[in-house]
């Protein structure tokens, strides 16, 4: 399972497992879309990346595409628990300017509340 989704305080928590790369982005998109189909009321999301130890441009591109789609639907997505190595990819690609990044899921949830 690439993604484990849950709902907390009305916000969708997207827990991503292991690497988010070209090999896993399709499964990520599909699993997230099927969870969203079951929970259409959830507009805001927190992507919990504590288990993501590697990310490439395809993974990052998918996160940006998901953020764009969520924003178009009137919601927002924040990033939580970004690990050291993927953080470096965020830094060199300037993705930190696109996403709001928090140390913990709770911190991200507080921002929504």
């Amino acid at each position: 399972m690439v993604v484990t989704c849950s709902k907390e305080q009305g916000v969708g928590i997207i827990e991503v497992g292991h690497a988010l790369t070209a090999a896993t982005v399709d499964a990520f998109r599909e699993q997230l879309a099927s969870w969203q189909a079951v929970e259409p009321d959830v507009k805001n999301f927190v992507a919990d990346l504590k288990q993501v130890d590697f990310m490439d441009s395809a993974g990052l591109g998918t996160l940006i595409a998901v953020l764009k789609r969520i924003s178009e639907e009137g919601g927002d997505m924040k990033i939580a628990c970004l690990q050291k190595k993927p953080r470096m990819v965020f830094e060199i690609t300037r993705a930190y300017k696109v996403f709001e990044i928090y140390d913990t899921v709770d911190d991200a949830l507080k921002k929504f509340n």
């Binding site: 790369t21 070209a22 590697f54 490439d56 441009s57 395809a58 190595k85 470096m88 990819v89 060199i92 690609t93």
Partner: peptide, 8 residues
């Protein structure tokens, strides 16, 4: 980090 992504 070793990046296996020639776009980066």
């Amino acid at each position: 980090i070793e990046i296996d992504d020639s776009w980066l």
